[in-house]
Write a protein that binds this DNA or RNA. Structure first.
Lengths: 153, 153
DNA sequence: GCCACAATTGAGAATGATTATCAATTTTGC
DNA sequence: GCAAAATTGATAATCATTCTCAATTGTGGC
């Protein structure tokens, strides 16, 4: 089933409604196909004349996350990123602290060990976050200034 | 060298000052020996009559993190947790979403694979976050209500 | 040990992403 | 097509954390 269909099913299962606004938001996300912030989406809509209230967008993103169609990447600070998860499986992220680029990675061994760790501690895993922060290939190459000691100019 | 000594060295290296307030905060943290929030510390101080301004506490915590004496655990929402890192090495966390308990875990294989992944993508790792969220042994046992579908009572 | 000067403190305001409120509007099962 | 329930948008609220700035406190050099 396609994304719109899955969202529709999720909504009806939960006695929620498929509205024009929700459809528009899902379409916009499918068109982006990448990582984005709530503000990115709001800007897209504004550019196209269609105006969506921030509250509505946040509410819809929450529903999409619940439906498993979108994944939310909580950043240490600043806005959260979102990414469509339609037709994709789980992966984790490397985040460039210089340019903000997000690189995805996926490792079955890590996932397996993680599950083992939980089993050993009798911990029932619900979700996890695995973020590597550092400098991407381009930024390290271009001599991105490293964290400067205090007092240095 | 002990924690106070290391902090003093960090401060002087960076042209910062060892003040009475900073000493008090470090002592309080060493006394706690566990995970805590900024508010936990503020409450401790208030209880003892010594009042520390939130701004000051946050500033000092930031210095302690920079000095490598304290680690900050960014939560998806709500206050950040901190933990003393004096005389300990790196570990990651399992966080119980029912009771808030934080369980530490440590796995060399995961760390090694992580480093490999970075090498392959030419990514210069600065720091990482690896959090497993779910239900701890006690909470799963006590029949903690699972995430309830919408509309259910 | 004192002094000048830079760093620190505290009080309070500001920030900023996200969430809550609520009246007006839209969907939908029947 | 209707009534009931959900949604929307405008706006206010939240809340952890950071900023501002005047008053205070450490410290290196003498």
């Amino acid at each position: 089933m396609n994304a719109a269909g899955r969202f529709a099913r999720y909504l009806s299962t939960n006695r929620l409604k498929m509205t024009r606004t929700r459809r528009a938001i899902l379409e916009e996300i499918l068109a982006i196909r990448g990582h984005f912030t709530a503000d990115d989406l709001l800007a897209h809509f504004r550019r196209r004349g269609r105006d969506v209230a921030p509250a509505t967008l946040y509410r819809t993103l929450a529903r999409l996350v619940e439906a498993g169609l979108v994944h939310r990447i909580d950043m240490a600070k600043g806005q959260a990123r979102y990414e469509p998860m339609f037709g994709r499986h789980h992966h984790d992220h490397m985040i460039c602290v210089s340019c903000g680029k997000i690189i995805e990675f996926e490792n079955r061994t890590i996932e397996r060990i993680q599950a083992d760790v939980c089993r050993r501690k009798r911990f029932t895993l619900v979700e996890h976050t695995h973020q590597l922060r550092g400098h991407c290939a381009q930024c390290s190459q271009n001599g991105t200034p490293a964290a400067r000691p205090r007092g240095a100019s």
